[in-house]
């Protein structure tokens, strides 16, 4: 990464502490003042689950077995990506005071955004496992693959996060466009419907979307007790790795402009 580059300054221990303390700040700060604390982060995905369940089981039947765990997996996995990217977009532009600190590693900010958003997934996960169990899923050895899938998703989000954060500093429209793009992404990902509901000629668009493969991998593991499709995961990891290298370059290139544009 180039130790001389200011945005990446600091020792490993310092980075670890910065990330840990700022993630815990975001998280505890968000819910400390509320009565039921972090359970609030469950409210929105559960509400969406109820809506989808009513719409696509009762109103229009999509004919997806184990629909509750199926949809909930889609919702919470997508939410991580969505929340992380939106948080990353403003992670530099809304933290001018931190960017101006001579010894603060600015490149930690996107990592903090992605990690903070992951905690909502972690909180919702027990509920997903419970739903899957109610729907008849087995607890199998395959669950050990979960951290690998989560790591692949982390890498994927982070690669985009660096690019988005760096570009948003000089092109603020990113902050406006991103929610719209993500909203579109919601319907090009099998979150509340399945690929079998989609006519064949459109499959290409869905399969080109890495989130389709990520969500499918989670479902394979949790609902069906199957190992994820390693090939597609491998491609995502490799692609994200390349994109991350590009993202870091863009970020490094843009870092000196951060304070000028803010």
């Amino acid at each position: 990464m180039g130790a001389r580059s200011p945005a990446f300054r600091g020792s490993f221990n310092h980075w670890r502490d910065v990330i840990w303390l700022l993630v815990s700040r975001d998280f505890r700060g968000r819910y400390k003042h509320t009565k039921v604390g972090m359970l609030w982060s469950l409210a929105s995905p559960v509400m969406f689950l109820l809506i989808f369940y009513f719409l696509f089981q009762k109103v229009i039947n999509l004919d997806i077995p184990r629909y509750a765990s199926y949809a909930f997996a889609g919702i919470i996995v997508w939410n991580w990506t969505q929340q992380a990217l939106i948080a990353s977009a403003s992670s530099i532009s809304s933290n001018q005071a931190l960017v101006a600190q001579p010894r603060f590693p600015v490149a930690a900010l996107p990592i903090i955004s992605v990690t903070s958003s992951m905690l909502n997934l972690v909180i919702a996960f027990p509920l997903l496992l419970l739903l899957a169990w109610i729907d008849g899923a087995q607890i199998t050895l395959v669950l050990v693959a979960l951290p690998i899938v989560a790591a692949a998703q982390f890498l994927l989000i982070l690669a985009f996060a660096y690019i988005i954060a760096a570009i948003n500093v000089s092109l603020r429209d990113v902050e406006q466009i991103l929610p719209i793009a993500l909203q579109l992404g919601y319907y090009v990902t099998p979150i509340f419907f399945s690929m079998s509901n989609v006519p064949g000629e459109f499959h290409g668009a869905f399969l080109a979307n890495p989130m389709t493969h990520i969500i499918t991998a989670y479902r394979d593991i949790i609902m069906y007790g199957q190992w994820p499709a390693w090939t597609s995961l491998g491609i995502i990891v490799a692609g994200s790795g390349l994109l991350l290298i590009l993202g870091l370059r863009i970020f490094k290139h843009a870092q000196y402009r951060f304070l000028e544009e803010l």
Binding site: L21, R25, G29
Partner: peptide, 24 residues
């Protein structure tokens, strides 16, 4: 910079400290 009003003074000293470049 970076401190959070909902957290205690002690927590905020930790946050302010890492932002200033110290380890925990």
């Amino acid at each position: 910079a970076g401190m959070h009003p909902e957290l205690s003074g002690r927590d905020n000293i930790l946050i302010g400290g890492v932002i200033a470049g110290l380890t925990r």
